[in-house]
């Protein structure tokens, strides 16, 4: 008896009998021991810090450009050198994090909210509601992404004064929710048919309890993974739209814009193209690794 108790307390050091350790607490314990999580989290934190307080990383002004320094090499604070307009590449890259991250997070939130709602409704309700919503998803998927995005972004950013941030967020959000909704729908359907849901229904549980206590916790992890990947995809999507000239513009500074502007000069000066691309790729990778680690931690069956 005392042995058993010892095992219990060793496994759950932070809990009293009265406070069951929650799912999040368990996941955190699991995450703490994963290297991938720490690497990804460190990268994400750096990028978020860059987005919030770029002046922590550089004292230079990304708008301070001198043609005299055109394509000059690294010097002083400008560790990545200067681009074709004589702007500090390092400063531009650091300041570019803000718009890239803001656009990606906001667009993913919009896509997530739409995807969660549509997926839950279709999966839980079934029947004609599911059929209607699923066909709507099919229609959305039938729209070629680039064509839809160009049309939508152009339409939304008709105001010449704006820097296009809101237009890009709406475009990526409205076009990006379909994958998340599909994943959510299928996860909800498989969770809804589990025996433990039937057991709760038999006890007299209402739809709210079934949904939020039983179905949602058991179907949310693939959705979270899709959203984390979508964060990366949206960062790349913003870059694509900016490159094509329908994304960010004017006084906005972003990795996508930097890649678009410096692309044509890559043969004479590679650094202004390479560094924003490296930051872009690293950020996308960090979000995807983070999503993967979190998914594993939240899945007790993998433990």
């Amino acid at each position: 008896m005392s042995d058993l108790n010892a095992v219990t307390t060793a496994e759950a050091p932070a809990t009293d009998a009265g406070k069951p350790r929650g799912l999040a607490g368990d996941a955190w314990l699991d995450l703490r021991s994963r290297k991938v999580f720490w690497i990804a989290a460190a990268l994400v934190v750096v990028v978020l810090l860059m987005a919030a307080w770029p002046s922590l990383f550089t004292s230079a002004d990304p708008g301070d450009c001198l043609l005299a320094r055109k394509n000059a090499g690294a010097s002083g604070g400008a560790i990545f050198g200067y681009d074709f307009q004589g702007c500090d590449v390092y400063a531009k890259t650091v300041y570019g994090a803000r718009d890239s991250v803001v656009v990606a997070i906001a667009a993913t939130l919009i896509a997530g909210v739409i995807g969660l709602f549509v997926g839950l409704a279709a999966g839980y309700a079934g029947g004609w509601i599911d059929a209607l919503l699923s066909r709507f998803i099919d229609v959305m998927l039938g729209v070629p992404f680039l064509l839809g995005a160009i049309v939508l972004a152009k339409r939304l950013s008709s105001d010449p004064e704006s820097n296009g941030v809101v237009a890009v967020i709406l475009t990526l959000g409205v076009l990006g929710w379909t994958a998340a909704a599909r994943v959510m729908r299928s996860a909800v359907i498989s969770a809804k048919n589990q025996d433990y849901v039937a057991a709760a229904r038999m006890l007299g549980a209402g739809p709210g309890r079934l949904m939020f206590r039983h179905i949602l916790p058991n179907s949310i992890s693939p959705f979270i993974v899709v959203l984390t990947i979508l964060l990366g995809v949206n960062i790349a999507g913003e870059a694509t739209l900016s490159y094509l000239g329908v994304g960010l513009k004017g006084d906005a500074v972003s990795w996508g814009l930097a890649i678009a502007e410096t692309g044509p000069y890559a043969r004479t000066a590679a650094a202004p193209l390479v560094w924003p691309s490296v930051f872009l790729a690293a950020t996308v990778l960090a979000f995807i690794m983070l999503g993967d680690a979190v998914r594993d931690a939240f899945d007790p069956k993998l433990r």
Binding site: L23, Q194, D195, Y196, A198, A199, M202, L203, P217, P300
Partner: peptide
């Protein structure tokens, strides 16, 4: 009137204590 289900592996919610 209550029920004991067949499969003990699927009849308990894995996310609940």
């Amino acid at each position: 009137i209550q029920m004991v289900m067949q499969d003990p592996y699927t009849s308990l919610n894995p996310r609940m204590t």
